[in-house]
Write a protein that binds this DNA or RNA. Structure first.
Lengths: 239, 239
DNA sequence: CGGCAAATTGAACAGAGTCAAAACCAGTGG
DNA sequence: CCACTGGTTTTGACTCTGTTCAATTTGCCG
């Protein structure tokens, strides 16, 4: 059930049997959600964190004029709001992008982990810090990359992150978002995203169609994006 | 020396005498740096984290074409790279924007804190999560706000964050950056920042001049920025 | 087959970038 | 005290990337 989460943690650090058991027993409940449902509302008091088991989830902020910025996409194996454990309530909302299965980890159980397992606490802390790394890379994309590179960069990021949890291979991955949702990640309009996708397709790099990203030339995609996966910290145990 | 840091922590949680002493004894060394000096290089192995005592520091990422995106500004009292404790090396660099005095906190001492003081560990964890909140708000700015609102928003954020550590009053604050550096925060060119600053000045909201932000109409500034300080979590203890 | 959301396309427009020149300003040295 | 220097700020003219608005097409699903 939480295998994806564990393998992601173990990519970066050792998790012994006792710690694994501690993580497992953190989970109180498994819940299914339909697509496009806000599961955590900005500002509401939190009593548990949500671990994504299946589906895609995002963090987003709304603006008063109806615009929305998605600030992070979560893939299976991610804690979507582990940071909520220390923050107590969130500055943003969390919604499902696709139908999802999620596990709930009550904060009192996470609290016990922080009291009893310092190493595991650091692992959890690391995991929220890794989210921040991704936030920073998105800031770079939003601030400095133009639409084509920015879009290519996002597809590269997801390719790598999904591969870690066995949900992508060399040909691509399932990613059933609308172009409007993609635009909300990229700080663009859906019209422009559509044009960028056509360009990427015409250049033979990717196809975004039928809820799937088909990567036809990853090397070229990485090249236009100037994608450097260092910010995803995939090699931490080797160092 | 670390009074600003402590008062910032205490705004959000209780820190008892023993914990305060633990924080104090974390610091091994105090160092001065000139302006515009990179003090942590992307990728290098880290052995300590840096607490800002005086001056402004930023996190930034360079792109291959020479562009730069500043992803965060640190003010006195901030740990600039506490996240480096769990990450071991950073995905970005850290540089001084002004002459700075910083305190070094060796990672082995922070490690001891995580072994012995679970509550203080959560406080530190919170503090890196708060940085992530600011990253998210910057994502919203970069992705969805236009230049004028985005710039106004940054000045609002700094007004609030500096007020916490007693470095801003109703009239404004010292903020000796160049317009180019401001542009690197805002995802704009320095030419356009110059025009935006003129507009903000002409509208009677702020003056950015002589290394100082003089706020002439904070209410109006907040209004154009649609600034909501909730993401800075200033009221956590009251809840 | 019909209905509806999503994708696609075109044309006009605007916000921000680019390029280049001029003005300003603080520090330095004669 | 003043001229020189180099970085920063300011301004103008022009360009371009991405937006806006509106219409059309596509594709899915009951």
């Amino acid at each position: 059930m939480i295998g994806k989460h564990l393998s992601k943690l173990r990519l970066r650090d050792e998790i012994n049997a006792e710690e694994e058991e501690a993580i497992r027993s953190c989970i109180s409940e498994i819940v299914d959600y339909p697509a496009d449902q806000t599961i955590v509302h900005r500002g509401e008091e939190l009593h548990y964190s949500t671990l994504v088991l299946e589906g895609f989830i995002c963090r987003y902020k709304d603006l008063s004029d109806g615009q929305r910025q998605i600030t992070h996409i979560h893939v299976p194996g991610d804690f979507a709001d582990l940071h909520g454990f220390t923050l107590k309530h969130l500055d943003h909302s969390i919604m499902t992008l696709t139908p999802c299965k999620i596990a709930k980890a009550p904060h009192e159980r996470i609290l016990k982990i922080t009291e009893k397992y310092p190493h595991l606490t650091r692992v959890f802390w690391f995991s929220t810090n890794l989210d921040a790394c991704i936030h920073r890379e998105w800031e770079v994309s939003l601030g400095r990359r133009r639409a084509l590179e920015r879009t290519a960069h996002l597809f590269c990021e997801l390719q790598v992150r999904l591969q870690i949890v066995g949900m992508a291979d060399e040909t691509g991955y399932a990613f059933p978002l609308t172009q409007t949702e993609l635009a909300e990640c990229l700080g663009l309009t859906s019209v422009h995203v559509n044009r960028v996708l056509r360009e990427l397709r015409e250049r033979g790099m990717i196809e975004f169609r039928g809820g799937r990203v088909s990567i036809t030339d990853f090397k070229a995609l990485k090249a236009v994006a100037e994608f450097d996966p260092a910010y995803l910290y995939m090699e931490l145990r080797d160092r």
